[in-house]
Write a protein that binds this DNA or RNA. Structure first.
Lengths: 241, 241
DNA sequence: GACATTAGTGGCAAAAAGCCAATAATAGAC
DNA sequence: GTCTATTATTGGCTTTTTGCCACTAATGTC
């Protein structure tokens, strides 16, 4: 860096230039009683005060080391747990999505096993699990309905060639439970044998505890948990075509 | 909106809050003489003045209707042509990537048929096509080397289950040319029969002109162009496993 | 011990890729 | 014209993975 550039940087002030508002929002999915749920928080501030919205907010320029951490920090604040899966979906920006003006938001998608909201921290603001199927009736803040649709779409397409949905289940789980998670996400029945063959052949799961924990009737099922470090596994063919 | 919120908005000023710098950058790929090229521009301003960088910049809050348009506008300014393919790759943000401070950038990926830079507009700033394989030797501005790697990675993975690479070719093209584009992107030889069967069965191409335009010797090849509106086609299985 | 219920498997058909060799169409040499 | 080199295109069999459906396995209830 030469002295010319040093001089430029010494006098640079980002407030001298018009810039869009920048936020990070996350759609947190879970599964409970055969229903897909998303986490919503009630807005405590303007704009859209009182409406339901996605957990999200501004980057903390002092604390956050990158935008991933921004998302993780908010996730932790609202759920009190670390998400086993967090990934970026997309970024949208336009002048109309926020009444304060030109606004850009990076959308994340998180999957966590179900935890009742009562057990969560940050009880100051209202936080609820809301059925995914019913969010469109809710008059969400900003364009958050659209964001939820984008995240759902992404989750669905990844469900077709990865094993992502395993992260909405508490460990350990049975293959039948895993299949139910897939079916709810894809909105479609899957063939039992094909499903099991595919998952087991991929070696994504470790069998843990042979045939315990029954829910009442029928043959006890084998229990599995995700093998470590295989989050990014991709099948070479999509499922349920 | 109630009067309370109106009052809030009337007094809201985005400059009152610390915000990261926000930019949009695009990796523009093309193919020329059996080599993959990316478009680079020489920075005319601080910081990193004089270094090569990706085409990109700030949102124009008055003109751009969304960030897609921001990317399109810059693409048009640097190449003078409309890209047949533009899609978002990811957004990265951290306090170290730009010496001016906390900075967020949304990365796009564009594919265009080769056009010599001489024919391009905006000749004020220096613009070059640079071989993708040699960018790491170049001391690019900011984290743009990393951004190019991310875009390349995305393009490679999409090449495995879509027909995206067709957009780097001038229309019309032969199947052999298309296969070469795939092979350069995947860095791997593909099987001729499998490739042709896959592409043709998908009905992504329209045959146009039967067996014209030869480069010299051998049997003349059939010419094709992309069928309209099939950009998002995805094969149910990846290729070249 | 029969039955209901859930878990798990056997085995073949169908779809799509891998593989390799054969055939087709052109230009140029002679 | 005929032969040869070169590139394009196709035939056809093998392999891999999913789709399908019926069958077996293990448990609780009566």
């Amino acid at each position: 860096m030469n002295s010319d550039e040093k001089h430029y940087l010494a006098h640079y002030n980002s407030k001298d230039y018009p810039a869009p508002i920048y936020t990070v929002d996350t759609v947190i999915f879970t599964l409970h009683e055969s229903e897909l749920l998303v986490l919503l928080v009630e807005r405590g501030n303007h704009p859209h005060k009182g409406k339901w919205a996605l957990p999200g907010g501004f980057v903390n320029l002092e604390q956050d080391l990158d935008i991933n951490e921004t998302a993780l920090r908010m996730l932790m604040a609202k759920t009190g747990v670390e998400a086993p899966l967090l990934e970026q979906v997309a970024t949208i920006g336009n002048p109309t999505r926020d009444p304060r003006g030109w606004s850009v938001s990076t959308l994340y998608l998180a999957l966590i096993p179900y935890t009742p909201v009562q057990q969560m921290l940050d009880s100051v603001t209202d936080v609820v699990w809301h059925p995914l199927n019913a969010v469109e009736k809710l008059d969400l803040a900003f364009d958050h309905l659209k964001l939820i649709e984008m995240a759902t779409q992404r989750l669905q397409s990844k469900t077709a060639y990865t094993a992502l949905p395993m992260h909405v289940l508490k460990k350990p789980f049975t293959l039948t439970q895993l299949q139910q998670a897939f079916e709810l996400l894809l909105n479609k029945k899957l063939e039992k044998k094909s499903f099991r063959r595919r998952i087991l052949n991929a070696n994504l799961l470790t069998e843990v505890g042979e045939s315990v924990q029954e829910n009442g009737k029928g043959r006890p099922a084998a229990l599995y948990e995700p093998s470590p470090k295989l989050d990014q596994y991709a099948f070479i063919r999509v499922f349920g075509g």
